[in-house]
Amino acid sequence: MTTRILITGAGGFIGGFIVEEALSRGYETWAGVRKTTSRAHLTDPAIRFIDFNYANPQVLVEQLRQHKEEYGKWDYIIHNLGVTKCKNPDDFDRINYGFVKHFTEALIAADMVPRQFILMSSLGAWGVGDEKNFTPIRPTDTPHPNTRYGMSKLKAEQHLQSLPGFPYVVMRPTGVYGPYERDYYLMMKSIKYGFDFIVGFKPQLITFIYVKDLVQAIFKAIDRGVTRRGYFLSEGRAYTSSQFRRYVATALGRRWVIPVKIPIAGLWLVSVIAEKGAALLGKTSTLNRDKFRIMKQRNWICDTTDARNELGFEPQYSLERGVNECVKWYRQHHWL
């Protein structure tokens, strides 16, 4: 019997890798993308495409009913749709929370609830951790997000928890990197030219997860059939910015890189200017007030015990290995 899966936000960085894994498993794979979204990484002819109207609940219910009548239900839905930067700050709440609310309620109304609804959330939904002793952020800690992005993700999680019996699974990865990702790419590009910009003067411990490890965690959750659970995901080791710089420089064959430390106050000013300037031009800025709070945070260590014990999640990529693979891809595609 054919296993059907839907991946929303499939045109994005993480979405493309999820689609690739679903296809490799022989699933009937549906990619939820807008008509205006690039399909550069969704070229397999086996992919089936669908475009939902998340903003209109009534239309969304009708779309789902029509799909059910023609193709049947999806066994699994991975909701990877979301925004990390917006022209209008209210869009964080409208898209990251509001679309999840509309979509899940429409699935219930159309009798299209899957075996599992996997939500891509973020470690940012838990907010700032212990920046004195650097104890790991734990699922049992009280969430207190300090960014619009994190708040919107937490609201989406809380909505899922409020739905009686709804088979959700929440993935909360730390910083995700990999081929064709753009934020860490900008850092690598800066290192290529001999400079590494570091925020603040206090110690900072950062964590990562390679995109292929994140995808494996998602499908391990499917294999284990867990529901109504949430998981922090990272490689399991913390790094300093100098270690990240060293791995990138070595992969690039760069002997000397100058670390440039930026005071917190200076970064705040630059972030505000960049955000307001982009807004005047009708664009989004990678550097903004939300991003500032993320970069300011000193402790990104999280407890991945639940993912290891319940999913059998064992990351295969160290930061060094992942960086080497990334740099190779960026060079092959003439990004670096």
Results as ranks from 00 to 15, higher is better:
4 R>G: 02
8 T>F: 08
8 T>C: 09
10 A>Q: 09
24 S>Q: 12
28 E>G: 02
34 R>N: 06
35 K>F: 10
37 T>R: 06
38 S>I: 09
49 F>G: 00
50 I>M: 11
54 Y>L: 15
55 A>Y: 06
57 P>C: 08
60 L>H: 07
63 Q>H: 04
64 L>W: 10
66 Q>G: 11
67 H>T: 06
69 E>I: 07
76 Y>K: 03
78 I>Q: 00
82 G>D: 01
83 V>M: 06
85 K>N: 14
98 G>H: 01
105 E>F: 01
107 L>I: 11
107 L>S: 08
112 M>E: 14
118 I>Y: 00
128 V>Y: 07
132 K>R: 13
132 K>Q: 11
135 T>A: 11
135 T>Q: 11
137 I>A: 02
138 R>A: 01
148 R>K: 14
151 M>D: 11
154 L>A: 06
157 E>D: 07
158 Q>W: 04
162 S>R: 05
163 L>H: 05
166 F>S: 07
166 F>G: 10
168 Y>Q: 08
170 V>R: 03
172 R>M: 13
176 V>P: 10
182 R>Y: 10
184 Y>L: 15
193 Y>C: 01
194 G>T: 08
194 G>F: 08
196 D>T: 07
199 V>L: 09
202 K>T: 07
205 L>W: 13
208 F>D: 04
212 K>R: 15
214 L>R: 05
215 V>M: 00
221 A>Y: 08
223 D>E: 15
225 G>Q: 12
230 G>N: 03
233 L>N: 02
238 A>C: 04
241 S>A: 13
242 S>P: 00
247 Y>R: 03
247 Y>V: 06
249 A>D: 11
258 I>L: 15
263 P>S: 09
266 G>E: 02
266 G>K: 05
270 V>S: 04
277 G>M: 08
285 S>Y: 07
290 D>L: 08
290 D>R: 05
298 R>H: 13
299 N>I: 02
302 C>N: 14
308 R>Q: 14
309 N>R: 13
317 Y>G: 04
318 S>G: 09
318 S>Y: 11
318 S>N: 06
325 E>A: 15
